[in-house]
Amino acid sequence: MHDDLFSHLTSTPEPFVPGAYLLRDFVGQQDQPLLHDLQRILAQAPWRHMQTPGGLTMSVAMSNCGKLGWVSDRRGYRYASLDPLSGLPWPKMPPSFEALAQSAAAVAGCEQFQPDACLINRYESGTKLSLHQDKDERDFSQPIVSVSLGVAAIFLFGGLKRSDPVLRTELTHGDVVVWGGPSRLRYHGIAPLKPEEHPLMGRVRINLTFRAAG
């Protein structure tokens, strides 16, 4: 069941390609509860810059909440039930987060979405995320739900091969992208963030990416 917080929201899905949809301003005026819960998460699991398996430091700062958290280090990319910095379980996923993810997925036709992980990314001016696939999850039948907060960003959405053509779409505060089915393993990323400022979030962009990982 979806929490009442988002039960009133409506948005006409804008299809990218089969299985991928953009929900403009889906968050609406419910951004304050999300940001309040985000601060509680970060108090338990602060921002960190993870390492790639090759030893490079990622420019995007990250945290997690939920039963599982996405981590990266010399051992590779994977999900873990414990925060490697504290050795404690990741913060529980707040009801506001889960309700948003499930409501957005339902609007996009994925009524059974049950996220157990939320990767939280922080982008600053010049920060980018190279094209990649979300393929560390066990069940590819479940979609990805991605929520944008703060400074606008250019979302890059490619094909099933890294060399495929890339669609470029601006995402602004409150936008949600849902992709699954034939689009589930498409490459995607974020172009370098422009040096702009958002009235609520300042000079950063926060991205909440919900997955059914376990």
Rank of each mutant, 00 (worst) to 15 (best):
L200F: 09
R122H: 01
T52G: 08
P165L: 09
C118V: 05
D83T: 02
S163N: 10
A191K: 10
L208C: 12
H132C: 07
P95Y: 02
T127R: 02
A153V: 05
L160A: 14
R186S: 10
I190H: 11
P165F: 05
N121S: 07
S96P: 04
R75F: 03
G126K: 13
G202H: 08
L100Q: 14
A45P: 04
T127S: 11
D73E: 13
S163R: 14
G55E: 07
D3M: 13
K92F: 01
G28H: 14
G158H: 07
R24Y: 11
T169N: 03
L160S: 15
A20I: 10
L156R: 15
V166G: 03
G189E: 05
F113W: 06
D83W: 00
A45D: 04
L129S: 11
Y187N: 06
L185S: 12
K135Y: 14
F113Y: 11
A101Y: 10
V27W: 13
M201V: 04
S72V: 00
R122G: 01
L171Q: 08
S130Q: 15
Q133F: 05
L156W: 03
L167Y: 08
W90G: 02
R122P: 03
G54H: 12
H49S: 05
G214R: 12
Q114A: 13
R162P: 08
Y79M: 01
A117L: 00
A106Q: 14
R205D: 10
Q102T: 13
V176N: 02
L22Y: 04
R138N: 15
S141W: 01
Q112F: 07
V176G: 00
A99S: 15
M201T: 12
L185C: 12
G158E: 09
F210Q: 13
A108E: 12
T172D: 10
M62L: 14
R24N: 07
V107Q: 08
V151Q: 04
A99L: 05
V151T: 11
V107F: 00
G69L: 03
P46E: 04
G87M: 09
M58D: 02
V145H: 00
G54S: 13
E98V: 02
R78M: 06
F16T: 07
L100K: 09
T52S: 15
Q112G: 10
E124A: 09
A117S: 15
I144K: 01
P46A: 08
D134F: 01
T57A: 04
L100A: 08
A104P: 01
A104T: 02
A213S: 15
F140C: 10
C118G: 00
A104I: 02
P15W: 11
G69T: 04
R74T: 03
G66I: 03
V176C: 04
D139V: 09
R78Y: 09
G66V: 00
W90M: 03
P95F: 04
L68R: 00
R138V: 10
L38Q: 04
L129W: 06
A153M: 09
Y21K: 08
M62V: 12
M50E: 15
G150P: 02
S59F: 04
D175Y: 07
T169L: 04
K161A: 14
K194C: 12
P46C: 00
T57K: 07
V204K: 14
L9D: 00
Y77F: 12
S11P: 01
Q29C: 13
S11M: 01
P33F: 10
L185E: 12
L149N: 05
Y77C: 02
D116S: 10
Q44P: 02
S11W: 02
F97C: 02
I41V: 14
A61C: 08
G189R: 03
S7W: 07
V151Y: 05
T127E: 07
